[in-house]
Simulated scan of single mutants.
Amino acid sequence: MTRTAPSDTKTVSDLDYAAIIQFYAGHIQLLDAGRAEEWAEQFTEDGVFAQNAKPGVKHGRAAIAAGMRKGIDALAERGLTRRHWFGMVTAEPAGPDVVRTRYYAVVFETPKGGEPRLYLSTTAEDVLERRDGNWLVRSRYISHDGAETITGIEAVAGAGA
């Protein structure tokens, strides 16, 4: 099936789009499995991670991994499991082997022995870079629905391309 888009919209090839979706599937399953360090390895060495609802920008794999490890450990202590669901992914070329993506992400949270519930709804913007045939996240900006933006952090959304 051929994807169609308005004539003024840049799109990636069908093969690149499929590879990006496959990257996201594996990437987020690492996070949901509690493998923060492996998940952070899928950022560039100088990768950037920011959220509009939380102060501070994480720079570099080590800082990104440490921040996520802290969160994962806190969830485990509380007996919670989180699952992320990405959808409505758009991908636009931004240079040789560089793609900007935008997608919705919802996060479900389930307490041990309990019922799942919707925890969070977000929009995310990534800059992905292909190195040696693999996609890496150069920058990620997550905008929590309903949250106020922390001044200055929104500039991360345009970083890296």
Rank of each mutant, 00 (worst) to 15 (best):
A19I: 03
E45S: 04
D16S: 10
V57L: 08
N134W: 03
E38N: 04
R69D: 10
T151R: 10
N52G: 08
A76H: 11
E148Y: 05
R138Y: 00
F43H: 03
R83F: 10
T9M: 10
K54W: 10
D46S: 11
F86M: 14
V12S: 05
A147Q: 09
D16K: 02
E45G: 02
T101I: 11
F23M: 00
A147E: 12
D14N: 04
H27M: 01
D46W: 06
G67Q: 04
A91R: 06
R35M: 01
L15E: 13
D145E: 15
D132S: 12
M88A: 14
A157K: 14
L118W: 06
I142A: 08
W135Y: 13
F23A: 01
A91G: 10
I72D: 02
V48Y: 01
M68H: 07
E41Y: 03
S121R: 10
G60W: 12
T101M: 02
S7A: 14
G87A: 14
T122P: 07
A74V: 03
E38I: 00
G152S: 12
P116H: 13
A157M: 14
A53G: 09
H27S: 03
R140C: 05
P93V: 06
I72Y: 00
S143L: 12
V156E: 02
L31D: 02
T11Q: 11
D32K: 00
D145Y: 06
F49T: 01
F23H: 03
E154Y: 05
T122L: 11
G34R: 03
V48S: 00
R100I: 13
A91N: 07
A161F: 13
G26M: 02
G60M: 10
L80Q: 14
T9N: 00
T44K: 00
R140A: 05
R3N: 11
F43C: 01
E37V: 04
Q42G: 08
K70T: 13
S121A: 14
G47A: 02
E37K: 00
H27L: 04
R78Y: 02
D32P: 03
A62L: 11
I72M: 07
Y24G: 00
D16H: 06
E38Q: 09
E77V: 08
T4S: 09
R61F: 03
Y119Q: 13
Q42C: 09
A147R: 06
S13N: 06
G158V: 04
E148Q: 15
P116N: 10
A19M: 01
E92K: 11
E37N: 07
V107I: 15
R61K: 12
I153M: 02
G114V: 05
V98Y: 08
T2C: 03
T151Q: 13
R140L: 01
A161R: 12
F23S: 01
V57Y: 05
A159S: 15
R102L: 05
